[in-house]
Amino acid sequence: METILTINNLDKKFGRVHAVNNVTFDIKKGNVYGILGPNGSGKSTTLGIILNVVNATSGNYSWFGGNMETHDALKKVGAIIERPNFYPYMSAYENLKLVCKIKGAPIEKIDEKLALVDLLDRKDSKFKTFSLGMKQRLAIASALLNDPEILILDEPTNGLDPQGIRQIRDIIRHIASLGTTILLASHLLDEVEKVCTHVVVLRKGVVLYTGTVNGMISNEGFFELQANDNLKLQNILMQHNAVDKIEENEGKLMVYLKAPLEAAELNRHLVGHNIYLNHLVKRQYSLEEQFLQLTSPSK
């Protein structure tokens, strides 16, 4: 699979603040990547470096296999890293026509991109009349005018209402389905889980996880159990070699695993010790639970 972007040991310090700390990851063509982390984790700084608007302290990155200079490579990149900024008294079409002149993109692309973000019927409306969600969608259309190989978005749903968030998510999915690689930075777990195939988790500039979203949430999971005699149940469970730890919550035992264990196998084991459950549910950790574990200050 073609590599769009390679980042190696990227470092950025602002005085005593280590904003980006030895960050390394690759972006492969055709995937949707999320850089996920709390505010102040280094997401925007990382994007600023690869877009050549922030100078790295050390480390390096290369676009498209390093076969072209950054200036030329960025012509194949579409990016929105700040709030949409267009001329308020010009229409959507007029604003995009100006962008086409700056980017050297054909004007014929304007209607196509406006349709893609569901703004074609508002092409003649002035930018100042647009809602925040519409402004963000126009910015996405603007970033797509040169048919970039990768689209970079920094907090694309920030400040939007639920309807606006859903519209942006649907647009991102659609753009990805057309073959465009996407890299977005977000502190919203739901956003990343619903639109991304891969995730890079940052905390205080340090990469805590890089890989697929499914890989992050796949785990041995845990059981939620209850029996008439929870104390006896707990004692038997602690003797099982797949059990890591047990916690009690509202009369139920949360049984955390360190090795694979299926519900049927566990049930047979307990019946063999004359324990009959009146509640058994096997759960997987959500992306939120995994994220909170990774980014916990105690880690």
Rank of each mutant, 00 (worst) to 15 (best):
Y93T: 13
I80C: 10
P148Q: 05
D170C: 00
D147T: 13
A73N: 00
K43P: 02
K135Y: 01
K123D: 03
K113A: 04
I102G: 01
L153K: 13
V54K: 08
L47T: 04
N158E: 05
E149K: 14
I168R: 00
A79D: 03
G133L: 09
I50K: 01
F127K: 09
A143Y: 03
A73P: 01
L145R: 05
K97C: 06
I110D: 08
F64I: 03
G42W: 07
S177E: 12
I80V: 15
N52Y: 04
G104D: 07
A176K: 07
E155M: 06
D147Q: 13
T45A: 14
R83V: 09
A73F: 05
M68L: 15
I110S: 09
I110P: 11
W63H: 07
T46V: 12
A139W: 05
Y89T: 14
K128T: 07
S41R: 07
G159H: 06
P106S: 13
E108V: 06
L98G: 03
G66Q: 10
Y93F: 15
A92P: 12
R169A: 06
K76P: 00
G164E: 05
P156H: 04
E94D: 15
G78T: 09
T129V: 11
W63R: 06
A92K: 10
S177L: 10
I168F: 00
L160C: 06
E112N: 04
N95Y: 11
D154G: 07
I152H: 12
D124T: 14
L138I: 14
I102W: 10
S131M: 03
E155G: 10
Q163D: 14
L74S: 05
V99I: 15
G78A: 08
L144S: 05
A56I: 02
Y87K: 06
Y89M: 11
L98I: 14
I150D: 05
D118Y: 10
I172M: 10
I182C: 01
R173C: 09
E149S: 14
Q167I: 01
D111F: 08
V53Q: 11
G42M: 11
P156S: 02
P106Q: 13
I150L: 08
T157R: 02
N85K: 11
S44M: 09
N95A: 06
N55M: 14
K76I: 02
L96R: 07
H174T: 08
L144N: 01
M68W: 00
N55P: 00
Q163G: 11
H71E: 15
A115G: 07
W63M: 10
Y61R: 08
I175E: 03
E149Q: 15
E69M: 07
S125R: 14
A143M: 04
E149P: 00
I81A: 11
L74K: 09
S62Q: 15
N85F: 06
L47S: 04
L151E: 04
T180F: 01
T45W: 13
I152T: 11
A105T: 07
E155N: 07
I172K: 02
N146Y: 00
N67D: 08
D170E: 15
I107H: 08
L74V: 01
I102R: 09
I152W: 12
W63N: 01
G164W: 06
H71M: 12
S142G: 15
P84K: 08
G59R: 11
I107E: 15
G133V: 04
D170M: 10
